[in-house]
Design a protein around this nucleic acid. Structure first.
Lengths: 245, 245
DNA sequence: CGGCCGGTTGAATCTCTTCAACGTCCGTGG
DNA sequence: CCACGGACGTTGAAGAGATTCAACCGGCCG
């Protein structure tokens, strides 16, 4: 037996096996880590799945740990004292989940779909941040991206009509989920990852208004529905027009 | 003559004279820099003032440079194709102004009041970021703070009534500008740093609605006005109630 | 003085919400 | 097996809240 082959099988350049096929290593924060750091991290990390609706915060799931999203969609929600809710962010794979340097986020994170995560203790990451500037750089980049997205959404919340809001939402999901949706004029097919109630909380509307606007998009032929979830967009460009740019 | 005294007068521990009384050195990003870095930076930095309404972007003022805000308020605006506007952020001293790692921000920055800035070339900062992790850490902290603020505001935009929005705005300004406004039950006095039009663009409302809601707060005794700008809040707590938490 | 800018106020309109009823899907239990 | 209940979604009618359009006021500058 060849020890070199054995070593390669187990470590493959020193990269832990669990990380080998992980998207977070390419596009996520783990890309900033060395093989040794990945090895250290993988010893305390664990992959797990959460069902739709499961909360990630207040269950020792996030306060004391960070996670990478491997698949699925996570929604970040803020709630007013009287119960009004607003979704303030959606996170897709391979986003990093967690708020460094702050214990209480005042935000609840919830699985919008079935979600699989790779979680690790806060302390290990916080130490690695201090040791390797590359990681902090990755975090800064992701945070800037989230800030850009939040500001884009502020325009939608503050200045768009209900019809434009719903179109903007479908367009955003299409771009995130459907690989083809990029070039204009193309079509797109995908599933909406959220209920009408979630969409309403995301758009600052009521369930009824969301439903009516989706119906309108359907009767106008901008989208084709089945399941109330599965969407076909014949022309992404036409949808963009409805989104008010 | 004593050379030690001379040296102290000019350099004072090596810290450049222009930086000595600068707030950014304490609470801003410059706090992460060594005396030598400050010296390097101060050679290419320049302090200047901008009048209200002056744009900071697209005038070689920001695209190729970053700035620290020394005084005044800067508004960040996004505009839709048809002219609808939304203010997506307000920055106060000693905030850092500029978007690292990205040439085009799709955001315009404008002086909401008279503003004084300390500006430096993008290239110098970008290099220092690479050299000193502390600076990147400061930037990450500020970006996280801005993200928190953006998300707070998303709740206001999406889920609050016009009355609550205006109260929230006045409350936010009070907390930023008036030193006393912290503890509940206290009173506060300050000037609104923006026109009604700006406030409307910030809250996703029309000028008229903003005006009506301010009038209502005035007739209800929650605020006392003069100048349409100067505000006295007898009880911050009562204002908080109007803001819907 | 006249015009413009920023702000206020009123009346009509419209968009979105509220309230209510109804339909469908799906798992549970008789 | 089918009836029941709940979650999710759609649709309609009535109502509230914000916008639109318009008039008006005061201050400032040319």
């Amino acid at each position: 037996m060849n020890t070199q082959n054995l070593r390669k099988d187990v470590h493959t350049d020193g990269t832990p096996v669990v990380c080998l096929s992980c998207e977070a290593r390419h596009r996520g924060v783990c890309g900033a880590l060395t093989s040794e750091q990945l090895t250290t991290l993988s010893k305390t990390s664990y992959k797990h799945k959460l069902g739709e609706g499961h909360e990630l915060v207040g269950e020792a799931e996030k306060v004391e740990s960070y996670s990478n999203i491997l698949s699925g969609v996570v929604k970040l929600t803020k709630t007013l004292a009287d119960g009004r809710q607003q979704i303030v962010g959606l996170q897709f794979a391979p986003d990093f989940l967690g708020r460094p340097f702050k214990a209480d986020s005042e935000i609840t994170a919830q699985a919008a779909t079935n979600v699989s995560l790779c979680s690790f203790p806060k302390s290990v990451i916080d130490r690695m941040i201090r040791e390797s500037p590359g990681l902090e750089h990755k975090l800064l980049e992701q945070t800037l991206k989230e800030l850009d997205e939040a500001r884009d959404w502020m325009v939608t919340l503050g200045r768009k009509t209900a019809a434009e809001k719903v179109a903007s939402y479908i367009l955003m999901i299409a771009r995130h989920i459907d690989p083809e949706a990029g070039p204009d004029g193309a079509s797109a097919t995908f599933d909406l990852p959220m209920t009408r109630a979630d969409i309403a909380d995301f758009l600052g509307l009521t369930i009824e208004t969301v439903s009516r606007q989706i119906t309108k998009l359907r009767t106008d032929g901008v989208i084709v529905l089945e399941n109330n979830r599965h969407v076909f967009v014949p022309s992404v460009e036409r949808l963009e027009l409805r989104a008010g740019s």
